[in-house]
Amino acid sequence: MSNKTKISVVLLAASAAFFTSLIGYEGYSSKPYKDSVGVATIGIGSTQYENGQRVKMTDKPITKERAIEISKAHVSKDEVAFRNSIKNARLSQAEYDLYLDFVYNFGQANWNNSSMRTLLNQGRNREACDKLLLWRNAGGRDCRIRSNNCYGVYARQLDRYSKCVAVN
């Protein structure tokens, strides 16, 4: 299947490239840390464990293998809600991965309220790409401004956007 081939989302799942990209952007931390908006995070950008318990700054360190388990469990839950939110969409694997990464990064509620979701359900995939660039803030800060200490959020959006445009 070509990276531009669009198929029903019910036939897609997070690819190996998705997880490689996720680890590349989120990095790995054995110890809890505060993310760019001050939320306790551990492993590969996880803010909660498989059982739904939120990460606390006092939690014990975890191994990289444990971090991968937590993120896979998180993604697995995200995928169900993500697929259900775009039942009418036809996506390429690249689009599926980049929008699932958006959900991992910004959350299901933000995804559900986004114009991207609406546009994808209408088959307007290229227009949905453009809406990615609207998501450039974290914690009330404009992440296009490097001194706001969240430029990585915006850089990740630029990467998603370029991948999206490339397949549309």
Rank of each mutant, 00 (worst) to 15 (best):
I145D: 13
S46Y: 06
A17T: 15
D59S: 12
I68L: 08
T20R: 00
V55K: 08
N121T: 03
G140T: 11
N84R: 13
C164E: 05
S147A: 15
Y104K: 05
A109F: 11
A89V: 08
C150R: 07
F106H: 09
L22I: 00
Q53D: 15
C143E: 06
R160V: 06
T118G: 07
Y49K: 04
T58Y: 03
R90T: 12
C143D: 08
K31Q: 14
F102E: 02
F19L: 01
K64E: 05
A13M: 02
N110C: 03
D59I: 12
T118E: 12
Y151G: 00
R141G: 08
C129K: 00
N51C: 13
L120M: 15
I70E: 00
N149C: 04
A155K: 13
E95W: 06
A13V: 06
F18M: 04
N51V: 11
R144I: 06
L132H: 09
L158A: 00
E95I: 04
R117M: 12
N3V: 09
A40Y: 09
Y28M: 00
E50Y: 01
S162Y: 05
N3L: 13
S71G: 00
I145S: 07
S36R: 12
Q108I: 15
Y25D: 10
S71Q: 13
L132V: 14
A73P: 07
Q93G: 03
D101L: 02
I23D: 02
A155V: 08
S2Y: 08
S21E: 03
I62E: 06
R66A: 13
S114W: 09
G140R: 09
K77G: 06
W111D: 01
Y33C: 13
E95R: 12
L11S: 15
